[in-house]
Amino acid sequence: MLTQTETFVPQTEPESREPDPRTINTVRDRNDRIFRVGLSSTGIAVLAIMVAVGVFLGVQAFDALSETGVSFLTTTEWEPDRGRFGIGSVLLGTVLIALVAIAIAIPISLGTALFITNIAPARFRGILVSLVDLMAAVPSVVYGLWGLFFFQPGVIGLSRWISTWFGWIPIFSVEGAESNSALPNASAFTASAFIAGVVVALMVMPIQSSVMREVFSQVPLGEREGAFALGATRWGAIRVVSLPFARGGIIGGTMLGLGRALGETIAVLLIISPSFDIKFRILETGGNSVSSLIALGYKEASSFGLSALMAAGLALFAMTLVVNFIASAFVARSRSGASSEA
């Protein structure tokens, strides 16, 4: 006969009360206190410099902004002394150049980062990393020269081909280029947002690539080996393990590059021929950016014109600031640092 047995749970005495966390009082002697005050003063100095720049720009820009109000964002002309000025067209130009740059830089930087971390033989890895970092150190004026004298003559054929065959897509159409004439008009394709964007892409590519590479090198080895053990090919392992793991870093690196692309001055200034029209035709000659507007306009500007330039600069700064903070939020929230149990 079966007897039913009960599971006995021994009654333990409940803990009388939670132990109070010990409070730790740090007592610093005079030496350390003086040292800390000294350190804090460097922090205050840096903070003061940075805040001074920001506040000064804001105060100076206020004159111009209070004159125009919201229409500052939509007006396309730039004639501050006649009271008609706004960043509608230059802001659009800045964003267009940056977007072209990012669209070109993303595949290259992602591919380079994956190539370095997953495919290149280990003994070449260090050299490749150094070379990509070196690209980030080359001065932007050198990239500008390269774009103006080397890349632009070579790419016109490609621009014309794209505009001939894909001209029905609005951003690829070009006005003033008789593509069927015997003597094609090459100057319709020079100094375009597309060419400036390609040059800026070369500049932001290494920045994006090094952030992505950093994240890819943190992919847990156990998860990759697991994928291989289940029969994945190398690309399969990249697709199911590396890319999902690194998603935050990829987005963050891209945004970081975008922030840099928005603020780039001298290469854009060298290549583009300024125009104040609102246009999305990236292959066509002419375009503008906020920073080249400042670089071209500061010399002749009256004090009010300078205030207007500061307002434009402030708008640019606000944009790069937002982009950078989004970038760092993504990088911080990516799974990097978390490891699998394998």
Binding site: V46, T265, G313, N324
Partner: peptide, 15 residues
């Protein structure tokens, strides 16, 4: 603030 300032476009430092 230091993070924010590293986003400052270089032309604004000049300006």
């Amino acid at each position: 603030v230091v993070d924010a300032m590293s986003a400052l476009p270089s032309i604004l430092a000049g300006l």
